[in-house]
Every structure is written in C-alpha cells, then in structure tokens.
C-alpha cells in the first residue's frame, strides 16, 4: 500500500504542476478566426488530458525503476506473484473508453458549430493549380489572384483544382480543406483580425509544392466593398499605365500567380530559368536551336510554354496561364521581366 500512496501523491502533484505549466505555453499561432477559438479550446482540453496521462504512465514507470530495482545481493530474487487483476483491467478499459467517447462527442459538437452556415455568408470560388491559387467572387463577378476578405463575416469557399490535389490551409485560421480535381469541396471560416495572411498548400502537389503560397488580405467591410467595386470597373489597358506602374503590377502578378515558385529574379537557378538578365538574351532550346528572348518569345512562353523549352530545364510549366491571366497581367509580366537586367 505504501507504494500506492507514494506514487499517488507524486502523480497528483506532478500532473497539477505540469498541466499548469502546459497551459502557459502558446502552442498555436495567432488566433485570427472565430473557428480558431473553438478549435483552440478543444485542443487545450486535449493537452490537459494528454499531460495528465503522460505524467500518470511515466510517474508509475519512473517510480518503479527506482523503488523496484534489483539491489545488490538480490541477484536471484523474484518479484511479487501477481498475475493480474480483472477489476483493474475492467477499470482501465472502461474509464479510457468513456474519456475518448466524450472527446469524440465534443469533436462532433465543435465540428457542427464551425461548419454551420451564417445567413450573410460570402461565397468565393477557389481554384488551385500547380502552383498557385486564384479566386472568384461570383456575386460581384470579380476575379483575383489575392483573396480579399471582410473581417468578421463568414466566408464559404467553394474549392476545386484543375490538376492534382492541393490543400487550402491558413494556420492562423486553423482550418484546412483539400481541393480535389473533378469535385467541389467547401470550407467555412470567419476571419476576426484584419491583416495579411498566407494560404499554404498542405498537400504535396509536385515540384514547387513548398512555394505554393497565396495571399489573403482581411480588411474592413468598407475597404472590401471598395475593392470589389474597383474590380468590377472596366478593365485597365496596358497603355493606361506608366512603365513603372506596369512593372509594379508585373511584380505583384508574378508573386500572386505563383511564377516565383519556379523562376527566381536574382539569377539563382531554380526549377525554371531565372528572369534576371533574361530579356534580350540568347536562349538555347531543347531542340538544339537558339532564339532571342524578345517580347513575342516571352509572351509565347507564358501562354504556350511547350512551344519552346529552354535546354536544361524540365518541360513542366502549366499550360493554362492563358485562361487565368488577363492580357494586362501578361503585358505587366513582360514589362517586369524586361526590367530585371
């Protein structure tokens, strides 16, 4: 009995201290959505129980190592004649059973809470491709390579992929959903803090998976309305912009459309050729010929990448940029590449 009392006291004190300590640790990144609050609460509860069980098992283990070790002169000694205890076995079957069922029940409740539809939810269509994200606001008829969201309003994402499986994850929002070719998946979330976040593709999707990031801008309702209206207005023509504006637009398009996942702008060799010093240079092609990288060549390489492939690089660039980029985007990209001397 004395061992039981000692270990009981040890575990009570240690587990209380450990649970207290664990609660002070900021496990998660910024809590920037309403769903994050529910999920973090449930995770915290998990951590409490995990900590208790961790101390319980390790407490008995370590106590046994010290209290029941074979001492000098006990070389042939044997342990107590204990074969088992059915009551104990039933107890440590039933108590864990109730605990896990309780957690599954809590999980069900929280899941139904965070996936319930709000009356004023905003619908956004999300398309994933190797290796970029694009967004469409069907009610306003606006397309974008960045996801603008109004703060404190629920958004329902209708997501699909045009090539392989990707996964939409915003760690600050705590939610994740795959985008699957041939079907539409849904994800609801309610951003609660204004700011800039990243969508991080969480499903291995090929070469540039690590770089498949998208930008999310959570803004006030007014800013969001203004941005939508701007998007609805007549499309800007390349001639309307100064060279500098065009270059700036090209730089942000390159980032948002995922170009920079494979093409560096500082001369580093990556999956695709670097853009630095590209414009006007002589390009060796896979068929042994060469060509000069003028505007027509760059335009063709964006819209029909298979037409001419540079020697030494894999022919893996997506062929659908003609559908996802506007002609303004393409001209801006050309201006940007031209500027990278």
């Amino acid at each position: 009995m004395k061992h039981g009392i000692r270990v009981g006291v040890l575990i009570s004190v240690l587990s209380a201290a450990m649970i207290y300590w664990m609660r002070t640790i900021p496990w998660m990144p910024l809590e920037a959505s309403r769903e994050a609050k529910d999920i973090d609460w449930l995770f915290g509860l998990h951590i409490d129980v995990i900590t208790f069980l961790y101390v319980l098992v390790n407490g008995i283990l370590i106590y046994s190592i010290f209290a029941f070790r074979r001492k000098k002169g006990e070389e042939d000694a044997v342990g107590a004649n204990l074969h088992g205890n059915t009551k104990l076995e039933i107890a440590w079957t039933v108590i864990p059973l109730i605990t896990v069922l309780f957690f599954a029940y809590l999980g069900t409740i929280v899941l139904s809470d965070i996936s319930a539809a709000a009356a004023d939810e905003l619908e956004v269509n999300v398309t994933a491709r190797q290796w970029s994200w694009s967004f469409e606001y069907p009610d306003a008829g606006v397309k974008s390579t960045e996801l603008y969201l109004p703060v404190d309003r629920q958004v329902k994402l209708n997501m699909t992929s045009v090539d392989v499986i990707h996964s939409f994850w915003v760690p600050e929002f705590r939610v994740k959903m795959d985008t699957v070719p041939g079907m539409t998946t849904n994800l609801r979330m309610t951003p609660s803090i204004e700011g800039v976040y990243k969508v991080r593709c969480a499903e291995l999707c090929g070469t540039a998976h690590a770089a498949m990031l998208g930008t999310i801008r959570v803004v006030s309702q007014e800013e969001f309305e203004a941005w939508l209206q701007q998007g609805q207005q007549q499309e800007t023509q390349p001639e309307d912009l100064s060279e500098e504006e065009l270059i700036n637009l090209g730089a942000s398009t390159a980032d948002a459309a995922g170009c920079l996942a494979c093409h560096s702008v500082d001369g580093t060799k990556s999956v695709g050729p670097s853009w630095k010093g590209l414009f006007g240079s002589e390009r060796p092609l896979t068929d042994g010929s060469t060509t000069i990288a003028d505007e027509a060549y760059i335009r063709e390489s964006i819209l029909d990448p298979k037409a001419k492939t540079v020697a030494g690089f894999p022919d893996i660039m997506p062929t659908n940029y003609g559908e996802t980029l506007t002609s303004l985007d393409v001209e801006a990209l050309i201006a940007y590449i031209r500027s990278l001397k």
């Binding site: 008995i60 029941f68 074979r70 342990g79 205890n85 076995e89 440590w92 069922l101 599954a104």
Partner: peptide, 28 residues
C-alpha cells in the same frame, strides 16, 4: 472520429498492463 478514438482503449490496456508487470518486481 468515433471509431478512431476507440483504438485508444486496447492500446491503453497494454500500457497499464506493462505498468502492472513492473509493479513490485525486481527490475534489472
């Protein structure tokens, strides 16, 4: 979610039975 949680139960039985095996033994 429910079925996955249930796997914890037989696994738990193993842990506690191991502790029971060590309890009041002569460990080397």
């Amino acid at each position: 979610m429910y079925s996955t949680m249930l796997v914890a139960v037989p696994t738990g039985v193993k842990f506690f039975s191991w502790l029971g095996t060590m309890w009041r033994g002569k460990l080397s």
